[in-house]
């Protein structure tokens, strides 16, 4: 049985333990009185703020705005990355020309592009989505590239023996090798984008999780800032786990 009680307990037990340890440490720090209430507030208060923010729809609106940007960026940057990776992974000549530039560019901290994009596109959706799409492009491109290149030679030999036609070769050899790589790249791209969207919204935006936090910081609403950080971390962690589990379920052969 997949979801036996024992299995669930073994999976969730340590996580619950860690959460409890973390929350009690936080609470003890608050009780100790060494931090003023303007700087550190107890977990229960953060939970109450989270509830309030959820109830009046603030959290939902801002979260959806951030999520929409990340989704658009992943769709645009990710598909460009897949196309780029497929071309460069299958053609050595192409890679010899583009490779060094690609490797140099992917080491640039993308956050530095923010001000340039703002000058070019103005503050708003366009600059955030462009910045995130750039950040999503590189991990997906790199992963696709390596997946396309990494078809094991002995499989190629088997394919040669069976004289598979190009369609079957694509279906049985190429796709199974590339798809898990793309999934892994997409997971990394999601992590980058989710981290970057908050930062991009700090530059200036009319909505979004980062905007909510930076506005609350100026108002010294520490509870909203902490609630925002908790939500951003929780969503990052949960989505990564879901993407990982989804990839494992859909492509069990490419388990990483």
């Amino acid at each position: 049985m997949l979801f036996s009680l024992k299995f669930v307990a073994r999976k969730t037990g340590p996580i619950a333990l860690t959460l409890i340890a973390f929350l009690s440490l936080w609470q003890i720090l608050c009780w100790s009185g060494s931090f003023p209430r303007t700087l550190l507030i107890p977990p229960a208060d953060v939970a109450r703020t989270l509830l309030d923010l959820t109830r009046d729809g603030t959290l939902e609106d801002n979260l959806l705005a951030s999520a929409r940007r990340v989704f658009l960026a992943l769709a645009i940057g990710g598909s460009a990355g897949i196309v780029f990776g497929l071309f460069c992974g299958t053609s050595k000549t192409l890679w010899r020309q583009i490779g060094p530039l690609f490797t140099a560019l992917r080491q640039i901290p993308f956050i530095a592009l923010g001000p340039l994009l703002i000058l070019g596109l103005g503050i708003g959706e366009h600059f955030i989505v462009t910045l995130l799409a750039l950040a999503a492009f590189f991990p997906v491109a790199l992963a696709t590239l390596e997946g396309a290149r990494g078809v094991p030679t002995r499989y190629l030999e088997v394919v040669a023996i069976y004289r598979l036609n190009p369609t079957d070769r694509f279906r049985y050899l190429f796709l199974p090798s590339v798809l898990p790589a793309i999934a892994a790249g997409a997971r990394i791209a999601f992590g980058r984008c989710w981290g970057l969207v908050v930062a991009a919204e700090l530059f200036g935006a009319t909505s979004g999780l980062g905007q909510m936090m930076s506005w609350a910081r100026e108002m010294f609403q520490i509870d909203v800032v902490m609630a925002g950080a908790v939500i951003a971390a929780a969503i990052g962690i949960i989505c990564d786990a879901l993407l990982r589990a989804g990839a494992r379920r859909l492509m069990p052969w490419g388990a990483t």
Partner: peptide, 26 residues
């Protein structure tokens, strides 16, 4: 490890920039 193992894998996914407003307050 049993106590903090899950926290380690969670820490990996922490969006570090989301801490900027908090860090500036602190």
């Amino acid at each position: 490890h049993t106590l903090l193992g899950p926290a380690v894998s969670a820490w990996r996914q922490l969006p570090i920039f989301s801490l900027v407003p908090l860090l500036t307050l602190w």
